[in-house]
Simulated assay, not measured.
Amino acid sequence: MPTELEAPPSAPTADQIEQQLSELGKDRLMQGGLRRLALRFLIDFKLSGRYEQSPRPISKAIYAEFYEFAVKKTGGIAPKDTEASGKKLFGELIDALKDYYAGPGKEDALIITLQGGMGGGYEPRFKWNAGLSAHKSAPNADVTAPDYGVIANTDFMRDIEDKVPQGTTDIWIAASDLSNVGDETSAYSDYVRKVVRSNALRNVDYTYICPQGHAGESRIQNLRDCFNDTPGKLHLHQIPLERFLEISVVLTHFISLNPLAEKPDAYMQLPSLDAHRAWIRLNHKDSARVVAKMKSLINSFPEDDA
């Protein structure tokens, strides 16, 4: 089934890659086993800048990290020989992608392949389908390079949210999970609350959107405590999961530090074992879409008492 992606001749944006990943996940070639999860992992691995590290990650290390990721996501058990299992799984994934684009995906706008062979590390490659004439003569094609960027090895809280510019009035966060996960008493959790309270004392309002049933009582209370006697206010909107997925087909976090600006920004967190260091800064068009959807959901669902 062809996807309806905007396909300019410039490099694909993160949002377009996510759309194509969603389309691939619907096909039978990605069903069963761990193929879909493996492709998700490899794309996140690339977008978070891991392949650019020196020395370049070797396949054996990638296999081990993938199965650690898979166990965390599925609750399953890692194979005894992650190298052999990983080589088999990722080899099958390469073949499945080839079969998909030779068959049901032959008219998809965006093609995703994996670089195999010695030193390839199964690195994903993204390219537009040159066989589609629309790509050659799209009347409204944006021929400029996209302005999104991967924020690799950056702690979003320490390096960005803790340094919002003077005059910031609102921070909007679409959080896929605000349940009581992790250690709420850890030093990092204390630091997060310190940053939020510091911004609240500077008259910054925080608005959270999360799926219904994904807001833990203690975590929300800790958030509310950050706003005691501050000019900044906390707003929490719990919405049906299916509506939250209108922001993105992937359950993840989005943050905008200037949602009311004429050209708002937006950041997307990549699912990762080190998620607070794996973010994408979306381009202006994708940021505007994400923020507009957040605004629509905020207006559609009343906020919880905060």
Rank of each mutant, 00 (worst) to 15 (best):
A130S: 14
Y100S: 01
I151E: 04
S10A: 14
A261N: 10
H214T: 13
P104Y: 05
E92C: 04
S186Y: 08
A288I: 01
N129L: 10
P79C: 09
K163I: 02
N180I: 06
S59F: 00
N140K: 12
L282D: 03
C210Q: 06
L297I: 09
L29H: 09
D44R: 08
D44E: 13
P8F: 13
K233H: 07
R158P: 00
A288E: 08
F69D: 09
S22C: 03
I247S: 10
I17S: 01
K285V: 15
I173V: 15
P9V: 11
R219Q: 14
Q238W: 03
A14Q: 03
A288D: 02
L297W: 05
P271L: 08
D81R: 11
R50G: 01
I220R: 01
F45P: 08
A14G: 14
V164Q: 10
K46L: 05
G121T: 01
V291I: 11
L42H: 07
K46E: 15
A138H: 15
R193Y: 15
A138W: 08
L282I: 11
D159Y: 02
F90L: 13
P302D: 15
P302G: 12
L241R: 14
L201E: 14
E107V: 05
A14W: 07
Q20Y: 00
T144F: 13
K233E: 00
D147T: 15
Q166D: 12
H284F: 02
P124H: 00
L34T: 04
R281P: 00
G75W: 02
K80N: 12
D81T: 10
D99F: 03
P271A: 06
P302E: 12
N228Y: 02
R277N: 14
Q166M: 11
F244W: 06
D274H: 10
K293Q: 13
A64T: 11
Y191A: 11
I173W: 10
E6F: 14
L39M: 06
T207W: 03
R125Y: 00
P146R: 07
